[in-house]
């Protein structure tokens, strides 16, 4: 393969002299992270005007399907801020890389082989419509979602829909098991559009939903009658991650880009879009509770991942009843 030998030569070159970094050529970024990704791409473009960078913007599902289909001749170089569950499900698509930013990351947000690096933290919280519910009625814990008073007042995304949606179910299961989960299922309408969850609560179709905190914060800033409730029994610490696509057309620029995406500067851009950074030295977005104060519980994402098929099969079975 021509590209591979080129890549090899380039890698050897880089090893021989750290300063010989390509600052021209192209770069293709797969961006499922919306505005956060767009800001990072713009920041990189400003820093390296010689590199012509282009982005493919789509959802995590579409981009990972695309990467799998392109495996024999990858068209993208980097994937930016996709949910960690997606990486765990597609382990062989990415290239390990020692980023100089590595020391600034906690080890639990970087892959053991350094094939992906944490980006933002899509914490799941309750979104409550403040017009439809008074404060004393707000659910405060995952267990509260199972209360009979919430019947018909709860909208959730079907856990088969995405990594985030499954994480919600997995958190309830790890905290309380199927007993509570079953009661939550009885209360909730499981939609198949993750947009619908917060849109429905924001527009007053439903009282309560569970979604990523960024969606709630964005709506609050726009003046929607909603508020964010962090479950007191703890939300799981999840993260999004970025990685270099193995065999991509511009491996040197990909490294340059990942270094930038891992930098403090880029993580501050992420924060400016209401997302929480995984870097400890970057403050959370204004108006969001500091990460250290958010009640968390030791969410085991490996356990969640290994039980996934079994849990979802059981969910489907209960759902159909």
């Amino acid at each position: 393969m021509n590209l591979k030998s080129l890549a090899l030569i380039a890698t050897v070159g880089t090893l021989m002299s750290q300063t010989a970094i390509a600052q021209e050529g192209g770069l293709v970024v797969y961006n499922p992270a919306g505005d956060a990704g767009e800001l990072i791409i713009d920041g990189f473009r400003e820093k390296y005007p010689g590199i012509s960078i282009s982005a493919i913007n789509a959802g995590v599902g579409e981009l990972f399907t695309r990467m799998a289909a392109e495996k024999d001749n990858p068209q993208g170089d980097v994937v930016l801020c996709a949910s960690s569950e997606a990486f765990l499900a597609n382990p062989d698509l990415f290239e390990p890389y020692e980023s100089p930013e590595l020391p600034n990351f906690e080890s639990d947000v970087v892959a053991a082989d350094h094939s992906f690096y944490g980006c933002s933290m899509p914490l799941q919280a309750f979104i409550v419509n403040t017009n439809l519910m008074s404060e004393d009625q707000y659910p405060r814990t995952w267990a509260d979602l199972a209360a009979p008073e919430l019947e018909g007042k709860l909208v959730l995304a079907n856990p088969s829909l995405s990594g985030s949606a499954y994480a919600q179910l997995a958190q309830i299961l790890q905290l309380y098991g199927w007993d509570v989960a079953e009661k939550v299922m009885k209360n909730a309408r499981f939609t198949t559009s993750s947009q619908s969850v917060f849109q429905d609560v924001g527009r007053g179709e439903t009282e309560v939903g569970v979604t990523g905190e960024v969606n709630i914060k964005t709506m609050m800033d726009e003046g929607y009658p909603v508020t964010a409730i962090y479950p007191e029994d703890g939300t799981g610490l999840r993260f999004d991650a970025s990685a270099i696509i193995a065999g991509g057309p511009n491996p040197d620029n990909a490294k340059l880009f990942l270094d930038y995406a891992n930098s403090k500067e880029a993580h501050e851009l992420i924060v400016s879009t209401n997302r929480r950074s995984v870097r400890k030295d970057v403050a959370p977005p204004e108006g969001l509770m500091p990460t250290s104060e958010v009640p968390t519980f030791p969410y085991d994402d490996n356990l969640a991942a290994s039980n996934r098929d079994e849990n979802l099969a059981k969910f489907d079975e209960l759902f159909a009843q």
Partner: peptide
Amino acid sequence: YFQIHGFF
């Protein structure tokens, strides 16, 4: 949609 987006 589940199979593509949730299960790849």
